[in-house]
Computed example of a mutant assay.
Amino acid sequence: MSALDAVLAAGRLAALELQRETITLYRPGDDGFDWDAGTDSPAAATVIYSGPARVKPAAQSRGEEVDAGEANVTLREYTVSVPWGTTVSQLPVVGDVMDVSASPDARMVGLRLWVTGLQYSSTATAWRITVEDRS
């Protein structure tokens, strides 16, 4: 093991200790419409990852107000870190959804976030996903 590998292993262990939230990252299914019944039929979501994560506001995030339909929405950017060695059946894409299901900060439970970007690096201590809160 090289010196760099040893430092990365220690950093990844330390990053894992900071991952105190539990999240579920999923891809919503395509909704359909039942013409006979006249109702929407939501499709099942595909779970991409469920487990520990660190959810923290992005360093430069100050919130941006935008119009969404007839409502004002404030976009806030977060960085979500999941364990570096996480394997998934499919990579997340922009538009996937992330829900916070548990956190030491009870105010974060129920937070819904949308994936806006992914970061990859062989020298990172965690796998980072850029998300936004659209509330």
Rank of each mutant, 00 (worst) to 15 (best):
A59Q: 12
E77D: 15
A59M: 05
W114I: 13
Y120N: 09
G69Y: 11
S61P: 02
Y78H: 10
V55K: 04
G69K: 12
S81H: 06
T116Y: 00
P92E: 13
E64W: 13
G69C: 12
S122Y: 03
Q119D: 12
M108H: 14
Q60V: 04
V80N: 07
A53E: 09
S61L: 02
K56V: 13
V109M: 08
R112M: 13
T74Q: 05
Q119G: 10
P92N: 07
V93T: 11
V88T: 15
V93L: 13
W84N: 03
A58M: 05
A102E: 10
P52F: 01
S122V: 05
V82H: 08
Y78P: 03
A71K: 14
D67H: 06
P104V: 04
G63L: 02
V94D: 14
A58V: 00
S121C: 00
L113V: 09
T79S: 13
V88C: 04
Q60L: 07
A124G: 08
S50H: 06
G69I: 08
R76V: 10
V97R: 15
T116D: 10
Q90N: 03
L91D: 12
T123N: 10
E77T: 13
E77H: 09
W114K: 12
V66T: 08
S61H: 06
A53R: 08
E65V: 10
E64T: 14
A58K: 12
A126R: 04
V94G: 13
A53G: 11
V73N: 01
D105M: 01
A71F: 12
S101K: 06
T74K: 12
V88E: 07
V109F: 01
D67R: 15
T123E: 13
A59D: 10
A68D: 14
G51N: 06
G110E: 04
S81G: 14
Q119F: 09
Q90F: 03
T125W: 02
D96M: 08
G85L: 07
V115S: 08
V115A: 01
Y120S: 08
V93W: 01
V100R: 14
A68S: 14
G110H: 03
S121W: 04
V115E: 05
K56R: 15
V109A: 07
W114T: 15
L113W: 01
W84E: 02
E77I: 04
V73E: 12
A106M: 02
V109L: 03
